[in-house]
Nucleic acid binder design. Sequence first.
DNA 1: TCCAAGTGTTGGCGGTGTCAACATCCGAGG
DNA 2: CCTCGGATGTTGACACCGCCAACACTTGGA
Lengths: 220, 220
Amino acid sequence: MSTASAGTSYHHGNLRTALVEAGVDAVRELGPDGVALRDLARRVGVSHNAAYRHFSDRDELLAAIADVGMTALTESGAARLAAVSDPDPVRRARLRLRELGRGYIDFARRERGLFRVAFAGYPSLESAPAMDLADSEHAGPFGQLNDCLDDLVRVGYLSPDARAGAEFACWAAVHGMSMLLLEGPLQKVPDEVATAIIDHMLTAIDRSQWASGSDYEPLD
Amino acid sequence: MSTASAGTSYHHGNLRTALVEAGVDAVRELGPDGVALRDLARRVGVSHNAAYRHFSDRDELLAAIADVGMTALTESGAARLAAVSDPDPVRRARLRLRELGRGYIDFARRERGLFRVAFAGYPSLESAPAMDLADSEHAGPFGQLNDCLDDLVRVGYLSPDARAGAEFACWAAVHGMSMLLLEGPLQKVPDEVATAIIDHMLTAIDRSQWASGSDYEPLD
DNA sequence: TCCAAGTGTTGGCGGTGTCAACATCCGAGG
DNA sequence: CCTCGGATGTTGACACCGCCAACACTTGGA
């Protein structure tokens, strides 16, 4: 039933999962545009059009792959967060935010294809994979970021009034850096330069969270 | 010679430009994936394969379209910069940076397709369109950003030591916000929410540039 | 004048997504 | 135990695509 059958049987057993796994492999190698329904079917050992019994559309398969990618990104972030062990609560909260950002960008660079497919917009689908912002739970990377920022408020590093909206600014910075390094004009900067740039930006984020003692006067 | 000829002539006259223009239209409507060589040739009134006399590859045509997009983005930014007229030099410099960022994001939202194609990475090409970072001139949006930051240093708002590397952080933030709004999980937030988020982030950038009077102590 | 390079055309190959019709298997109801 | 219907996989076809090869026309300079 659940496991793949041995010899040649008319029914595959769990084609859907097999297709998604093959799709993940293909996306890893060639990116979202490098995955073809027919090719996936060929790899799995099934003839074309079989996929249409499990996905109405190519985009639907891509979305399933994107879901895997988003989950992997989330788990990668969770591992980074768990690895932070600093006794001082303020330093701990700051380091957690920094490591979350670093993990995000690292994942993007390590898993180019998965990252790209995870954030490729599929207009035919009603919601982006694995993260409905209006949703109350926030299971994905956005939720991790929100938790980190809430921690920063709790330990007194980030002032509550500066907290509002900070999640989007942080997310944009980290996501944008990933995109610029991945397929943007920063594609082929040397690795050492890239890590320096990333470090600088993470520091800027850390500093910009600390808004308490500042006498900044806004524009307008 | 240069202008399009009237009736039916074997040679088109300036096929390359016509193809790029048709490609820009197609990208505007359907995005980078929606442009097909054969379709473009059909629109221009020329038969398929004619494009291969001017572009060795589909990617090469896409790159030409991307160049148009990048130029449009640059001009849009220049217009925004020119519109800032504040007598106070500090306010003026700060407003210019803010407006440049707002213009970048606005362009991305207004010209979805052109923006996407401008930043789509074409691995077959040796350099990203219209912006070689190692180049000395920096004609594109990155150059505008650098100029704005230099101005901020000149007027004394941004400290010279905080200047280094700030261009990448700012760029990443603005670019990431564009991507999240364009094809990311922020695709369908209401317009008013989007503008609020953008404003908040631009303020955060402005505030984070002002690092002079802070007693921020770095991590590690 | 004529030839060679530049440009556009026709035809074809292999690939793709998707639809329609058909084949096979499995499990529930008799 | 049998049957039959739904789920699943297959074959075939259509239209489209990128790209290659061979051919046709046009034009400018030797």
